[in-house]
Structure formats: structure tokens, C-alpha cells
Computed example of a mutant assay.
Amino acid sequence: MGGEKPMKKLVISLSAVVLACSAWVFYSFATEEKSDIFRSLSAELKEIQATKDRYIAQVEHIGITSGEFQTYKAYMRANQQLNNRKDELSDSELLKDLIIEKLLLLEAEKQGVAVSLEQARAYSDEMRHILESTADEKAKAFQQQVIALTGLREDEYWEKHAPEAYKSQLSIEHLLNKLVQDGVLPNASGDPESFQTAWKSYKDKLYESRSEQVKIFIDDIQ
């Protein structure tokens, strides 16, 4: 496997789909003048890691910790800066997006398309091999920056962190593909705008229909 598509999936970060996309944005826009954003993000992540963690929400049996949420928020803020976007999502909007991600994972399991950790490990090994074999030195250097942000050694990243992230990413991708095949969503290649509208509507309806299975434990994010 080679080419643009697998390279996009190489630079994954901390939280499944959204952060995988964010990491690719980092790669696409990473230039010398953007390095201060990376340094700021690195400092913020270290501060988050040094802060006592607690559960702030639960989606069925899946817990969301303050550390996971703050990490998600930090990546999204950096993503906004790299895209020169002035609009900023509120904490409640960001938490909703993170909750929807968990609901999508549960739906993937329900529909029998979730990826196992063993499959994710095999995929991680494949992506690592592609990265090590590529002649794109910028991609290699950028991946090292992504790994450094996690605070892990390279082997730890590929053997533990990456498989977990790919498990989430691929499970949601498989769910999305099934929804297209079943006619629930339109094909993105035919009409990307209609697809995005339908995908957003699907996620919003999923959130509303599963609201009783979602618990938020803090008053300042509702």
C-alpha cells in the first residue's frame, strides 16, 4: 500500500477520527512559521499530563476523563490556529463532539463493523512500515513531532498508542462505509456537500437518541 491515502493515515494523534484528521492538517500546514503552535501545544499537553485526572462524562460503559477532554480541546485549538480560523468552539460543543465519537464507536460495535485491537495492531505495523520506507523526509520528520507530543518512545507509540487510535479511527470509518452502502448516507464522491450535511444530521440524531445513555458529571460543561 502506498500513495497519498495511507500517508494521510500515518500521522495520527490522540483521539481517533477528529485528532487523526487534525494531525494530517498539522502535516499539511506545518512550516517554519507554524513551529510556535507546535511548541505551545507541546507545553499545554505537558501541563495537562501533570494535572490530576477525573471522570467528567460517561457514554454507556465508556468514561471520558478531564485529561482526554483537555487534550482533545488543545488539539482542536491548534487546528483552528493552523487554519487561521477565528471561530472557536465552546467547551460544551467540544464535549458533545467527543461524546458523539464514543457513540459512533458503540454504533460500530452494534452493527458488527468495529475493528479489533489485533486488526488495529496489524494496521499500525503496516503504516509504520510505509512511513519508514517513504522517501518523504518531511513526513518522517513530522511524524517524529507527533510522537514527541505524546511523550512516548517511538516503540511505545507504535505498539501501544497507535493501535488504540487506529482502532477507533478505522471502526468509525467502517461504520461510515456501511451507512453509505445501506443507503443511510449518500456517497461522498458524488456530492461531498450533501454527504457532509447528511453525516452531520446522522451524528446529531444519534446524540439525541442516546441522550439517556450519556452522563455529564460537571456543572460547568452541559
Rank of each mutant, 00 (worst) to 15 (best):
residue 153 R to A: 08
residue 207 Y to F: 15
residue 198 A to R: 11
residue 3 G to N: 04
residue 150 T to Q: 05
residue 30 A to I: 12
residue 101 E to S: 11
residue 122 A to H: 00
residue 73 K to L: 09
residue 189 S to R: 14
residue 66 S to K: 12
residue 201 S to H: 12
residue 98 L to V: 02
residue 88 E to S: 10
residue 149 L to A: 00
residue 79 N to H: 13
residue 29 F to P: 00
residue 112 G to H: 05
residue 103 L to P: 04
residue 108 A to N: 07
residue 171 S to A: 06
residue 29 F to V: 12
residue 153 R to H: 13
residue 169 Q to D: 08
residue 63 G to H: 12
residue 163 P to R: 00
residue 82 L to D: 09
residue 5 K to A: 08
residue 100 I to C: 02
residue 126 E to W: 00
residue 50 A to R: 14
residue 159 E to W: 03
residue 216 I to F: 08
residue 111 Q to R: 14
residue 143 Q to S: 01
residue 176 L to Q: 14
residue 186 P to I: 05
residue 29 F to H: 12
residue 166 Y to I: 03
residue 158 W to C: 00
residue 214 V to Q: 05
residue 3 G to C: 03
residue 67 G to T: 11
residue 55 Y to P: 01
residue 118 E to V: 06
residue 98 L to R: 02
residue 165 A to C: 12
residue 184 V to Q: 03
residue 29 F to K: 14
residue 130 I to E: 05
residue 35 S to D: 14
residue 195 F to C: 09
residue 38 F to K: 04
residue 207 Y to W: 12
residue 127 M to D: 00
residue 8 K to C: 01
residue 27 Y to R: 10
residue 102 K to F: 07
residue 151 G to T: 07
residue 192 P to V: 11
residue 77 R to M: 06
residue 193 E to N: 11
residue 220 D to R: 05
residue 7 M to I: 11
residue 52 K to D: 14
residue 123 Y to V: 00
residue 83 N to T: 11
residue 3 G to F: 08
residue 195 F to R: 09
residue 144 Q to A: 06
residue 19 L to H: 15
residue 200 K to G: 04
residue 36 D to M: 10
residue 141 A to R: 14
residue 61 H to R: 10
residue 80 Q to Y: 10
residue 34 K to L: 09
residue 91 D to I: 09
residue 142 F to T: 04
residue 45 L to C: 08
residue 205 K to C: 02
residue 45 L to V: 10
residue 194 S to N: 15
residue 137 E to D: 08
residue 128 R to T: 00
residue 93 E to W: 13
residue 159 E to Q: 13
residue 19 L to I: 05
residue 183 G to I: 08
residue 191 D to G: 05
residue 194 S to F: 14
residue 34 K to E: 13
residue 68 E to L: 03
residue 143 Q to K: 05
residue 29 F to R: 14
residue 83 N to D: 10
residue 118 E to K: 07
residue 134 T to D: 01
residue 52 K to E: 15
residue 49 Q to L: 12
residue 96 K to F: 04
residue 176 L to Y: 07
